[in-house]
Design a protein around this nucleic acid. Structure first.
Lengths: 314, 314
DNA sequence: CTGAAAGCGCTTACAG
DNA sequence: CTGAAAGCGCTTACAG
């Protein structure tokens, strides 16, 4: 086993080291990252873990599987605290000092600066930085066309946080579909939500308590659509008899409600997978494809949509 | 605005610093953690993000909300690589050097050593370290009693990874329920799974291809139970007519299958919430409660269980 | 081939 | 009150 040398040689040290590693030793990530330029750790920053983020994570992990990169997710617990605006910039800065070789940011509030590559999932509007997003325009257009095809003419819309490209495109899709059917947009049927489910409640209430409520509501996210369902029930509307509801995302919960939610599937798994693959390649200088990826969507029809009463009647 | 001094005083520096912070500046987490003894960051290590872990995470985030602690999740991407055994020890070591003030480990492979507090969710068997787990014995007993009450007498069991206390207790519950009904345990009806859904496929196949297949199968996790459902369908068994299936966990997917899966709910959210609260207190030296928390479970009856054919017949 | 020293980016305890 | 220096745990480039 032992060769001619008896002094403490590099070889001996290597052997000791490997023995230690067998027992689960790892050098401090902090100290080694400070000295080395590369850590083989990628970062993802998030402010909470709604189903949307959880699905994204699965795709990220799949893309990183056996890639040699580990993942650090940095989440601030300060849900409604002072960090709200710009949290993603702060987190990326904390990590990208030397800890991570690059970062993924999910639905950021703004453009993120960093010495290391950053890929945004659902970037802010007008960003030219690397990003992965769904084809929100086509998805939203299809969703509203589905309602129009069922015979709806007064269709309410609950928008998402307007700084995000996704929110903007989904509203554009709503307008485009109405325009295609020759229906003028009624601005009083549009509520300004922010993707947070809570933001949809007063908007849905306002729409449904009008003397002339819409016969259908398209919400820019499933979280908000599920809240619309809740408010509708609370106000005595039966879905889909009195009101059709369509969401966007296809989070797992949307299949669990009664009735199931008709929605636009945007494969959050694929968003995560694509972002992680791109980031990995940007870090290793191998990326040659487009830096702004747009993924297809598809309409999932469940039982929350039906023809409006007026056309179903005589 | 400016007071008498014109030199660069501490006050000026503080002002500059606060201005920088407005713009999203954060000092490097790495460098500051190396110097300070406290970082106000807690860690959680995981090897992947099945629904189980995603639910746990929601509870953790809730407990940390506005607590002043941020969360770092360290996940290795090497799903089937060399890290498998002992990954949690390596990850905890990498983080707890100086990065985190304490760690949560989810379903570890072994006892974890660390200079900082560690709380295990679903600890290994016989561990005396701080932990949070469901009342697996009672939950499993109730699940099997449910099958017995329906009239089943030949009940198969697919066990989980035996190093985990949870797997052990669930098997104990299975044995206890049978014993309570005066039914001897048939060891050939027990398959040794490891909680990984894939591990259940050959075991389910073996049970169902016997000349005398069981009329019901209880799997120690929903992931494995859903795999049993798949295999049963593939082999031409109709659930619940030909075979009843019960799982454990109540992950979101278990409500989505056709038929929905009868299972034991163990509130993974509460596991995460409890673990994070305990860890937070251990770090700040305030914890006074029990260091091993056991949470209640409840049976969720869906459509995957029914009386066996033989008793339903003449 | 081996070992001592410098330095990664910060914070803190100390000297001026 | 202010500023220069030491040191957190490592790795690496360099001197012996």
């Amino acid at each position: 086993m032992v060769n001619g040398h008896y002094g403490v040689s590099a070889r001996t040290i290597a052997q000791v080291r490997s023995a230690i590693e067998q027992l689960g030793y790892e050098s401090s990530l902090v100290a080694s990252s400070l000295r080395r330029s590369r850590t083989n750790v990628l970062g993802l920053v998030a402010h909470s873990f709604p189903s949307y983020t959880a699905e994204v994570l699965k795709g990220v992990m799949k893309a990183l599987s056996r890639s040699g990169f580990d993942l650090i997710i940095y989440a601030n617990s300060d849900l409604y605290g002072s960090y709200l605006e710009g949290w993603e910039q702060r987190h990326v800065t904390r990590l990208s000092g030397t800890l991570t070789d690059g970062c993924i940011v999910v639905t950021p509030f703004g453009e993120v600066q960093s010495r290391t590559p950053v890929v945004a999932i659902d970037p802010v509007r007008g960003s030219a930085a690397p990003s992965v997003t769904a084809d929100n325009l086509a998805g939203a257009t299809t969703a509203v066309k589905h309602l129009l095809d069922l015979g709806h003419r007064r269709i309410g819309f609950i928008a998402g946080r307007s700084s995000l490209a996704a929110a903007w495109s989904r509203e554009e899709g709503y307008r485009a579909a109405l325009a295609g059917a020759g229906i003028p947009v009624d601005p009083t049927l549009i509520g300004e939500g922010d993707f947070n489910p809570e933001s949809a409640a007063p908007l849905a209430r306002a729409l449904l308590q009008r003397p002339d409520p819409p016969t259908a509501i398209f919400a820019a996210s499933d979280g908000m659509a599920l809240k619309v369902l809740e408010v509708a029930t609370e106000l005595g509307f039966s879905v889909p008899a009195d009101l059709s509801v369509v969401g966007f995302d296809n989070i797992p919960e949307s299949a669990l409600t009664e009735p199931g939610l008709t929605t636009v599937d945007q494969s959050m798994y694929q968003l995560g997978y694509g972002a992680a693959r791109m980031l990995k390649s940007l870090v290793t200088d191998e990326w040659e494809g487009a830096r702004q990826i747009v993924l297809p969507t598809s309409l999932v029809v469940r039982r929350s949509t039906a023809p409006p009463k007026s056309t179903a009647g005589p």
